[in-house]
Simulated assay, not measured.
Amino acid sequence: MMKQKVLLSVNNLKKYYDIPQGLFKEKIIVKAVDDISFTITKGETFALVGESGCGKSTTGRTILKLTEPTGGRIIFDGNDIAALPYKKMRTLRNRMQMVFQDPYASLNPKKTVREILTEPLRVHKKFDHDTRLKKVKSMLEIVGLSEYHLDRYPHEFSGGQRQRIGIARAVILQPDFIIADEPVSALDVSVQSQVINLMLELQKEFELTYLFISHDLSVIQHMTDRVAVMYLGKIVEIAKTEDLFTNPKHPYTKALLSAVPITHPKEKKERIILKGDVPSPANPPSGCTFHPRCPAALDICKTQAPKTSEHGNSHSVSCHLYNKIEEEIPHAISHS
């Protein structure tokens, strides 16, 4: 079997924000993304999941350099994005696009659909005027709209239609890689499945690679190949989607999956209720950042950050329960 090409490699990525506290107070450092690593192969749909505020969206924006990384490397098809100057990065952007979460805020209300979809082609100097218009009309039909909508403004569309326009804007350049940041969370449930199916169809037609950011695990299970689970700026588990849902290892992953609604009245599931709230990234707990809420926390979790261990089939987890450090750990596994 031929090994798939790695399109994106994120190595030890960090994004910290400095928050001033006044003239005589020490500034606070918020670790929004704290030393994360993963790879995405060409044609794959890779997911980032976790609670709100865990750093998923910041990761996506940092990968595209919409916000500058604090540290680490972002390698896209052999190019170190973090080190690229502005002009070279701008040239590369036609291969990397983003679908934003809010279709109401991501479209310019003063521009028509014609202008919104023509702009990427014009900025990257692709095609002449007539060819651009043909491309725009063709893309509208592909996403389920028509030439009739060309001269309408965003406020004249429903939420689902606006997101289709946002997707068309991202795909019209025929990029290699698209980051979809919660693309269906702001839509009605009845529309969500239509948009998800559209994205899957576009992936096949244009050979797209997705980084799909979401907190909706049912959506993740339906459309992704691999999943990375984030908690407080760190990745705690990475696995193939099927493996993660059938054999989760990290206590946080188990808690997230236990919250997914059952699909059949006779199905039984034990709900894991986590104690407390998510700590502030400005003052994260010592050791394992999840230990204050973890039902299987050990003494070592309070003082030492866990190392990442491999468990076959591309499944990795950062948890002391799977690091054989003390004799109490096997005992903890058997009772977790």
Rank of each mutant, 00 (worst) to 15 (best):
E205Y: 11
E205T: 15
F206H: 13
F206I: 13
F206R: 13
E207Y: 11
E207K: 15
E207P: 12
E207W: 08
E207S: 15
L208N: 07
T209L: 14
T209A: 11
Y210P: 15
Y210W: 13
F212I: 00
I213P: 01
I213L: 05
S214G: 01
H215G: 04
L217P: 08
S218H: 00
S218A: 02
S218I: 00
V219E: 03
I220N: 02
I220G: 01
I220K: 02
I220W: 02
Q221A: 15
Q221E: 14
H222P: 07
M223E: 09
T224W: 02
R226V: 07
R226E: 12
V227F: 03
A228H: 02
V229K: 05
M230G: 14
M230K: 14
L232W: 07
L232P: 07
L232M: 11
G233A: 10
K234P: 11
I235H: 07
I235G: 06
V236P: 06
E237S: 13
I238M: 04
I238L: 06
I238A: 10
I238Y: 10
A239P: 13
K240N: 15
E242H: 01
E242F: 00
E242K: 01
E242R: 00
E242N: 05
D243Y: 04
L244F: 01
F245Q: 00
N247M: 10
P248G: 12
P251L: 04
P251E: 04
P251A: 05
